[in-house]
């Protein structure tokens, strides 16, 4: 049985004087214990909002959250906020992108880590202190006794992210949500942090939701990958299938946009044209149609559903005209299409 079932999650931003904006639109996915599920997409695709909605961290004012988030049988969205507070940190925890702004600058690292332990595990201060020391040690912070007394600004970026991870795993949560945990870090530090997260998942059976824009990170870490576009999941597959046979033109285009270290020199990139601002609403069309090189008439008149993909096992797709390996579609997004630099419309 899945640990977390997200069903038809929707988030609508309602701001005075503006049309309501659907940031997340009918997102459904499951996470099993010990499984790593990736949410991938570019800025504005709704990946972070999804995670904030699951954690109930969106202000009730101005944001309407619909759907069901069932954690071990309990619908988190219907839980009284007091109970939700008990669960945050204990059952589900989150790691944010920017470790400096998610740590309190005027409170020592030690106090911030022990706070979690005292609040959720009812530990006495001295016991919490000892436990905090062990936690910092576990996440690979050298000289933890000294670090406990220090403040966030005295730590390097990688250290801060480790401290944040230590806080997140302090109560051995069953679900960990990592929102771009390595984006602000250098590659060598990123490798350390990803290795640490992988170990946590393997050894503690923690379920992990990995939110990232970096397909390379996904390729190394995630079991199941959801590609988001305009607030909806457009493609879902296990990582091997997704990278071997990407079928949504957007996924295909993303992969063709990335300069690869192992690609032959002098190869030209084939980016997705335009930018997210070109999107059209999902209501009666495919939001990606204006940027898609593969669009057919139907894309502008009907909204595609997430259905089983033509290729692969358990591979799902939201597209009328998928890119197939030897079909005519491949060239339209990945190959010969003349992608001019004037791609972005004003």
């Amino acid at each position: 049985m899945p640990l977390l079932e997200v069903e038809d999650l929707g988030v609508e931003f309602r701001r005075r004087g503006l049309e309501p904006f659907r940031a997340v639109d009918g997102v459904s996915f499951d996470v099993d214990p010990g499984q790593t599920v990736g949410l991938v997409g570019e800025s504005g695709c709704g990946k972070s909002v999804t995670s904030l909605a699951i954690m109930r961290l969106l202000m009730p004012r101005g944001n309407r959250v619909t759907g069901r988030v069932s954690f071990d049988g309990t619908d988190l969205l219907r839980l009284p906020i007091r109970d939700m507070r008990d669960r945050r940190g204990r059952d589900l925890a989150m790691i944010f992108q920017d470790p400096l702004s998610s740590l309190n600058p005027v409170i020592s690292i030690g106090l911030q880590v022990t706070e979690v332990l005292q609040r959720h595990r009812g530990m006495k201060q001295s016991a919490a202190r000892a436990e905090a020391r062990d936690l910092l040690d576990q996440v690979g912070i050298p000289d933890p006794d000294r670090r406990l007394k220090e403040y966030p600004h005295q730590l390097s970026g990688g250290m801060r992210q480790r401290a944040l991870i230590a806080m997140a795993v302090a109560c051995r949560p069953r679900l960990l949500i990592a929102d771009e945990p390595t984006t602000a870090l250098d590659v060598t530090i990123q490798a350390q942090i990803l290795q640490l997260l992988g170990t946590l998942v393997r050894e503690n059976g923690t379920a992990l939701i990995m939110i990232t824009h970096d397909l390379g990170v996904v390729a190394g870490l995630c079991d199941e990958v959801n590609v988001l576009y305009g607030g909806r999941i457009v493609e879902r597959a296990n990582r091997h299938e997704l990278f071997a046979t990407p079928q949504h033109p957007y996924t295909h285009g993303l992969l063709a946009s990335i300069p690869r270290l192992d690609a032959p020199a002098g190869e030209r990139l084939h980016p997705v044209q335009g930018s997210v601002s070109d999107n059209i609403p999902w209501t009666s069309a495919c939001a990606f149609a204006p940027r898609c090189g593969n669009e057919v008439d139907r894309c502008r008149s009907a909204s595609p559903e997430l259905t089983a993909a033509p290729l692969g096992h358990g591979h799902q797709l939201r597209c009328f005209n998928p890119v197939l390996p030897d079909g005519a579609g491949v060239g339209a997004t990945g190959g010969s299409a003349p992608v001019d630099s004037a791609g972005e419309a004003l």
């Binding site: 060598t188 397909l215 990170v217 390729a219 190394g220 990278f243 690869r260």
Partner: peptide, 27 residues
């Protein structure tokens, strides 16, 4: 070498098999 091995490559097969040199400590 360490830098090259740390860069994630969007290829699960390669990611699983290639050798990674993880540097200890910070700059």
């Amino acid at each position: 070498r360490a830098l090259m091995s740390a860069v994630p490559v969007p290829d699960p097969v390669l990611e699983d098999t290639r050798e990674r040199i993880i540097l200890t400590g910070d700059l």
